[in-house]
């Protein structure tokens, strides 16, 4: 007599084996499907979504930067308009700047200053020669005989004059023969400046 339980289990074992194998192959299939899905999504992401997203973000960035520039430029334009208004208010004083640092050399104006100062110090007005130099100035030289004090006063007055000038060096000399007369010979080279407009010269 055979055991009914044994018979049942021997009949069911192939069934269980079959179900088990089926389940494993389903797992493998599902895994493969999932992996293929992710790979396809990655492919789509890289070749389709990526260029679009990059272009969109670049354009948005461009828009933001242009908005920022536009805002700052509006502020700058207001500042320029304000500066123009302020400049127009002081334009009448432009002649003050022109008398100090003129656009052109204005030799006659420079001569007037030197002559005026020499006359003020009761010194002899001699000949003035002007030489135009490479930089933004021309040079001349004063040679005169005076007392030491007058010489110093002349130098101080030249440096305080409205016309912009520079004294690169100065020389005092005393002639042996005129030692008693307390006169010194003053040698004073001057560099007189002007606003050389290099932009206009290039045009």
């Amino acid at each position: 007599m055979t055991n009914p339980k044994l018979e049942l289990s021997s009949k069911l074992t192939p069934l269980f084996d079959y179900i088990k194998k089926n389940q494993e192959s389903r797992k493998i299939r599902e895994t493969v499907e999932l992996a293929a899905t992710f790979i396809l999504i990655s492919f789509f992401l890289f070749f389709a979504i990526r260029p679009t997203v990059l272009t969109i973000s670049a354009l948005i960035g461009e828009i933001k930067s242009k908005e920022l520039l536009s805002k700052e430029m509006k502020k700058k334009i207001s500042s320029v308009i304000l500066a123009q208004d302020l400049f127009s208010q002081v334009q009448e004083r432009y002649s003050v700047v022109e008398s100090c640092l003129p656009v052109l050399p204005r030799f006659s104006q420079a001569t007037s200053q030197i002559e005026g100062l020499l006359t003020q110090q009761l010194l002899e007005v001699g000949k003035l020669d002007f030489q135009i130099k490479a930089g933004q100035y021309f040079s001349t030289s004063i040679a005169t005989a005076s007392s030491f004090t007058s010489g110093i006063n002349l130098i101080a007055a030249l440096l305080q004059n409205r016309r912009l000038l520079e004294i690169p060096n100065l020389g005092f000399s005393v002639d042996k023969e005129s030692t008693g007369s307390r006169q010194v010979t003053l040698n004073l080279p001057l560099n007189i400046y002007y606003w050389r407009d290099q932009v206009r010269e290039k045009k």
């Binding site: 920022l68 520039l69 700052e72 430029m73 502020k75 700058k76 500042s79 320029v80 304000l82 500066a83 302020l86 400049f87 002081v90 004083r93 003050v96 700047v97 008398s99 100090c100 006659s108 104006q109 001569t111 007037s112 200053q113 002559e115 005026g116 100062l117 007055a157 305080q160 004059n161 409205r162 016309r163």
Partner: peptide, 28 residues
């Protein structure tokens, strides 16, 4: 960018006062 550097609209007028105080001889 250099475009964004702000401009100061205020003019320094003190230098004009200093220049005006200096002596000038008018041409004869």
């Amino acid at each position: 960018s250099n475009l964004i550097i702000p401009i100061d609209p205020n003019l320094d007028l003190t230098i004009l006062d200093l220049i005006e105080k200096r002596q000038e001889f008018l041409p004869t």
